[in-house]
């Protein structure tokens, strides 16, 4: 076996340091990405200024309508009607495959089983 020009001790230090540098770089990047994300989200959800009526008394806003009861079997944003999670996952994968588009470029609103009469 030939001998490397690099001593084993140096190789160990370089390998450990290399992995540590990757982790450190990534950790710092996570901090930056999280901060930027928080900044963006904060901007997006900043409360709109409440208009003050001339009388100085805030008008009572009409009570929001109660949300419609969630459909049975909700998988994240996709509303499922009479469809199991497993079938929904398969349908989404098949649609993506048929359209030749990556799944992350598609947005499914709901999946409903149509019963033939």
């Amino acid at each position: 076996m030939t001998r490397s020009d690099m001593p084993i001790g140096d190789a160990v230090v370089t390998a450990v340091m290399g992995w540590a540098v990757v982790f450190l770089g990534i950790a710092l990047l996570v901090v930056v990405v999280v901060l930027v994300g928080k900044l963006m989200t904060a901007k997006k959800h900043a409360p709109a200024p409440i208009p003050v009526p001339a009388s100085g008394v805030a008008e009572t806003a009409p009570a929001p309508k109660p949300a419609a009861p969630a459909a049975p079997g909700v998988a994240g944003d996709v509303k499922l009607y009479d469809t199991s999670d497993r079938d929904a996952a398969m349908i989404m994968a098949i649609v993506a495959d048929e359209l030749k588009l990556p799944l992350n470029e598609l947005r499914f609103i709901s999946i409903k089983e149509v019963h033939k009469k």
Partner: peptide, 21 residues
């Protein structure tokens, strides 16, 4: 980052097998 472990493990292995740095 964790999945770069193999990079540095193989680097060390290559040194053991006599390759230069």
């Amino acid at each position: 980052a964790a999945a770069q472990f193999g990079v540095f493990f193989a680097f060390f292995g290559a040194i053991l097998l006599g390759f230069g740095g």
